[in-house]
Amino acid sequence: MSEMIFREEALQEMERIRNRYPDKRAALIPVLHIAQREAGYLSSDCKEMVARLLDIPPVDVEGVARFYTMFKNRRMGRYLIQVCTTLPCALMGAEQMVDYLSHKLNVKVGGTTADERFSLVTVQCLASCGTGPAMMINGDHFENLTPEKIDNILAELP
């Protein structure tokens, strides 16, 4: 019954990926990415389902889901704003961008806005150091940030 949490196409996509590897377990990270894309975050149901699909102990799925920063084990806002605060970006004012966003959205770092539209987190180097300060919103990179640019980016989100 918990299979129902994924659309049929998503399940097929997961199975296709599983079959690309000599060992099913190797598909765990790509499959968790799909699960998270479908469900928004990795709920216990999601993880159980993935464990069954790949035939691995649920504790192992849990361990992997908690090890990697990109996997979210709780519900996040519709837009996950991830600001890089590692040194090269910090030299270019990343901390001020975090403060600006935190103020503008009235949300603490690590928190989600009351309307669940935005979550704000700081992350480590995104390989955009030459165009810092940099951030990602869901899958997209935004670079050379300034407060004005942030205003425009947020205003254009659907």
Partner: peptide
Amino acid sequence: DEGEPGTFKDR
């Protein structure tokens, strides 16, 4: 996996 802070060439 390019993740070393200050590195953005492989990307």
